[in-house]
Amino acid sequence: MIELKELRAGYPGRTVLEGVTLSFLPGQVLALVGPNGSGKSTLLRTALGLLPRQGGEILVDGEALETLTPRQLARRAAYLAQSRPVPNITAGRMVLHGRFPYLSYPRRYRPEDYQAAQQAMKLADALELAGRPMPQLSGGQRQKVYLAMALAQDTQTVLLDEPTTYLDVSHQLEVMAAAQTLAQQGKAVVAVLHDLCLAMRWAHRLAVLDGGRLQAVGSPEELYSHGVLNRTFSVTLRRVETQAGWRYYYQ
């Protein structure tokens, strides 16, 4: 579990996030939502130490982030970055990179690494892509492979920065279903999402960021009643009850 306490973060000479206190709880999918530039990606990158924080505290499984080595941290939290280069290697080899934190010299993969990579590809619905070179895959297929690489890290916390970008609707639903499966396995899953309806349908909790400040955290029902999403996104959120529960749409 990762806990952020009064976090202040940003870039040299520019503070993006201010006073954010938030926990990534095991067994839950947390959706980070907010307008462009509200600090969602900055929050994920700072939580993993990829950006230096300007103030506050970050705890990973109760330990201060700065006391962990990069390797220790990589075994506790995986990250799907927004920038995803496409090297000319097969999808299978790409997913195996997710086992890097577990390899010692001379960095040869062990049977358990192949096993973990295969399971991750199955979960991300990318197993049939294993032998195909990355440049030959579509944007959506590449996305699945990157997701599988993050899952192959086999960590308790999984941070996904825009995991549904480039995906068509059915693949978006598959990714969110995979996120819920991970949560059911007891992992803490955090996803930056732009699609508010997708976030309201699949996340256990939503954290709403605006102007670098955390506006609200709560379940979809709580946030709907609160009206914070209407104010933040300047939309009118509505819902209808279906047999599968509430479904949300906006006007």
């Binding site: 993993l48 990069p70 990589a74 990250y79 920038s83 280069p85 890097f100 934190p101």
Partner: peptide, 23 residues
């Protein structure tokens, strides 16, 4: 040749490389 796997991970971009535990 010994550091080739590190080179592979670096080629995935700074953020991904660091999140995989590579300084």
């Amino acid at each position: 040749l010994t550091l080739a796997p590190e080179l592979d991970v670096l080629a995935l971009g700074e953020d991904t490389a660091r999140s995989l535990g590579l300084p």
